[in-house]
Amino acid sequence: MAVKEGFMEVTGGKVWYRMHEGKQENTPVIILHGGPGSSHYSMQGLDVLAEERPVIFYDQLGCGNSDRPDDESLWKLDRFTDELAKVREALNLKKVHILGHSWGTTLAAAYLLSGVTGVQSVIFSSPCLSAPKWAEDQERNRKLLPEDVQKILRECEISGRTDSEEYKEATKEFNRHFVCRLDPLPEILIEGAPYRGTNVYQTMWGPSEFYVTGNLKEFDCTRELGNISVPSLYTCGRYDEATPESTGYYSSLTPVSSVHVFEHSAHMPYLEETEEYIKVIGSFLRKND
């Protein structure tokens, strides 16, 4: 199977992409990774979708193989939606499916709601479509952690020590419950760590998944979900920080949508239940070609 990769110019620098060319007669799917700033690295196993269609990965500016400019003014949602438009244009993706994961769903929703055409369907994988709702969900999730872990998190946030080793270790406990429940962690997550864009993440989101302080803090598109008219699939893990309750709520607001919960996963069902994830995603894409 032919693979093409390279760089393209976007506002602020160059972004890297890889296209697995797949069967040209079927609509391509473009993968929007999480973060902000997490890179495509942990999601690269989704290249198996190329058995049926072209699959496009790209690292958003500020992470992965893409440029990492030291300019915090670039880390805004509208710049990332413009970046996605430029990637589509450069690769001549007139018709496309979009699969966004986590922050990638924020990006996918903002892009769709900007009035673009040619998107045949969208997959909101472990969605974050309201930062305030996300923060509320994580507040509840934190209360399920051991009391000593909760205490460390609270004290470090109050005292401004979210960059301390103590806070990072307590964060790992949250991650073991609600981000990836595999033990040991998959090697791909360990290998992918250097590809993260920490500056992007902290500027747009904050010091951790559950402490939202960045410029996305007020993002909430729930009132606009009724304007998404393309077929939409919402997925999440049973133990996901993107909770099944919130995921179902978003789906209820979206006209042509369905929900799938991966029963043995947290936030990374594409790693925690890979075979089932590919099956569900592949079926939805085929249905909407």
Rank of each mutant, 00 (worst) to 15 (best):
D183E: 05
I31E: 01
D220W: 03
N175R: 09
S125Q: 02
E169C: 02
L225A: 06
L74Q: 08
I158N: 01
E263M: 10
T11F: 10
A110M: 13
H101S: 12
F262I: 10
I98E: 12
R286W: 01
Q44H: 06
R53E: 09
P36F: 04
T105G: 11
E136F: 12
G248M: 08
G118H: 10
H264Q: 14
G13Q: 05
G214F: 03
V10Q: 09
Q24A: 13
G62M: 06
G13P: 04
N65F: 09
N175Y: 09
D289E: 11
A50D: 11
A108E: 14
P194Y: 00
K76N: 02
K133T: 15
G197E: 10
C180L: 03
K4L: 08
S252D: 07
H97T: 07
Y41F: 14
I188W: 04
M43D: 07
T274K: 12
T117A: 14
I158S: 00
D163E: 14
L233D: 01
S164I: 08
V15E: 02
Y111V: 10
A110K: 13
V119P: 10
D59R: 02
L99K: 02
V261T: 15
R79H: 15
E5Q: 14
D240V: 00
K86Q: 11
F57H: 09
P54L: 10
R161E: 13
I98T: 12
M268Y: 08
D78A: 11
P146E: 08
S73N: 04
V3M: 10
K287Y: 07
Y239P: 00
D82H: 11
E52Y: 08
K133F: 06
L153A: 01
W205N: 13
E209I: 01
I31F: 07
K94W: 01
D163I: 03
V200M: 07
